[in-house]
Amino acid sequence: MKVLFCISNVPDTTTKVKFVNESKKLDVSGIQWVINPWDELALTRALELKDDAANGIQSVTVAHVGTVGAEPTIRKALAIGADDAIRVNTEADDAYTIAAQLAEAVRSEQFGIIMCGIESSDHNGSTVGGMLAEFLGCPSVTGVSSVKIEGGIPVIVREIDGGKEVLTVSAPFVAIVQKGIAKEPRIAAMRGIMMARTKPIKVIEPAACESLTEVVDYEMPKARAACKYVDAENAGKLIALLQNEAKVF
């Protein structure tokens, strides 16, 4: 079985975001780009599955929709251990176009398991994975905190409101993964970084596709009122403030 995982190229999560062009565009100056944290966990789990020969995973492929500027992030995924990469050569637009481009790029490739992070840390949309599954006409499982293969069958744990479900699903399918899927993201070793330089990145030209949504502009959050301090010795006063001033009790 072949595994695919899709990555978003996002600003490092500690970035202080700023906007330019009348708040219509992210100011990319000085930004360090990384693999979206959830996608990185998906990669880690895909590699763990491949490490155990009993799982019968032939290869782990990374897919990304973006321009050549994203190649360092793709190379990072290859350095961590992905075998090869597919890049659809177009500026990422909305989730719908990204999912449509991914679907076109991978439709004929016979991936058994497709993994996507549950959201990207930039637009927090939580939509690309589910859209990709719908475009491909295959099942999806959303909120996945564990993927195992038992006797050739994928066994999944899905987090639901207030609990979890253990389920089986027939491949091909899209696993939309969240926290728990892997403990710590795997990091690239020197050998991996060297090897990544020669691993193939297949570049595909985009299909025609129109976006369904667009960003009109961005706004910064309103500043919160200054913090009101209570003396540690009289900590109990805080409860009175919460009751009488904030009126939360």
Partner: peptide
């Protein structure tokens, strides 16, 4: 998680922006 599962699939089916 249920909404995150359904909204994107409905988006593609109904060609509706999310």
């Amino acid at each position: 998680n249920a909404g995150k599962a359904l909204a994107p699939r409905l988006s593609v089916r109904l060609k509706a922006g999310v």
